[in-house]
């Protein structure tokens, strides 16, 4: 565990000292500011528009961090050969992958936390209550980012970063459309389409399971059971993907 923690802390430090992170934060802050400005233009829906834009900004930031930073997380270590000096230490390849993933999850959590603080201030300015639903919305964003990051790491174990970004973005979109895909497959006469849907639902998680961002807007609630099973679902996907990545990396020659 100590080795995993050391790799995670170093990964956190690496990303925090990288300029790309601040670009993403500025983008999210801009989106939250736009939400405030757009809210002013409406009479009755100001809170809803601000919440929508605010949560979208945080969601996009977390997803972009998971996909883009995740795609270079291991590739950079291989390209620059720093991985050579790490793997000759008493450190397994699984520990290395888990450490890298936890480091980025930590960064995403900090970024989401900071942006949430800004959004909470916007909410308070609009007299919208910052209650447990607000935090459940953020928790869903983190679960989704965690799985996307695991996909990034998996793809980066056998392909180049540009392909990693494309494939992970594909997973992100399909994962959000799985319910629609099921709806159309059930009504489709095409056997190929039906089989495609039947297979894809086992390869890609349903990201809509973690979409609790609108709860705060409509003041709807979510059961503890639903939260629990969604967490188990996300953690299982994360663990399976990380294990597959570690298995691929285990057989890899670092020539």
């Amino acid at each position: 565990m100590k080795s995993v923690y050391i790799i995670a802390i170093n990964t956190f430090r690496e990303i925090i000292r990288d300029r790309i992170l601040y670009g993403i934060i500025v983008f999210a802050l801009l989106l939250i500011s736009v939400s405030l400005a757009l809210g002013q233009l409406t009479f009755a829906e100001q809170a809803r528009i601000s919440a929508n834009f605010g949560f979208t900004g945080i969601h996009i930031s977390a997803v972009v961090l998971a996909i883009f930073v995740g795609s270079t997380l291991v590739a950079k270590e291989i390209d620059k050969k720093t991985i050579l000096t790490l793997l000759v230490r008493p450190l397994s390849r699984l520990q290395f992958i888990v450490g890298k993933a936890l480091g980025l999850i930590f960064v995403i959590s900090v970024v989401v936390g900071c942006l949430a603080l800004v959004l909470a201030m916007v909410f308070m300015g609009l007299n919208v209550s910052v209650n447990h639903l607000f935090f459940i919305g953020l928790y869903g964003v983190l679960l989704e980012a965690m799985i996307l990051l695991a996909y990034s790491l998996l793809f980066s174990s056998f392909t180049r970063p540009i392909m990693v970004v494309s494939c992970t973005a594909g997973v992100f979109f399909i994962g959000h459309w799985l319910n629609d895909l099921k709806f159309f497959a059930e009504r489709s006469k095409s056997l190929v389409f039906q089989q495609f849907e039947a297979v894809i639902k086992y390869l890609i998680p349903n990201f809509e399971m973690f979409n609790w961002r609108s709860l705060v807007i409509y003041n709807e609630s979510v059961s503890v059971g639903e939260l629990f099973w969604a967490s188990i679902y996300a953690i299982s996907w994360f663990c399976i993907l990380i294990l597959i990545t570690a298995l691929i990396i285990r057989r890899k020659d670092f020539a």
Binding site: S3, I6, N10, E14, T82, T85, R89, P90
Partner: peptide, 23 residues
């Protein structure tokens, strides 16, 4: 390793602490 590239964002001391803690 040959032509080593190290974590350029670390200071010399942080770099050695990182490897020291790992091993």
């Amino acid at each position: 390793p040959e032509r080593p590239y190290f974590y350029e964002y670390l200071t010399g001391e942080e770099f050695l602490i990182f490897y020291g803690q790992l091993s």
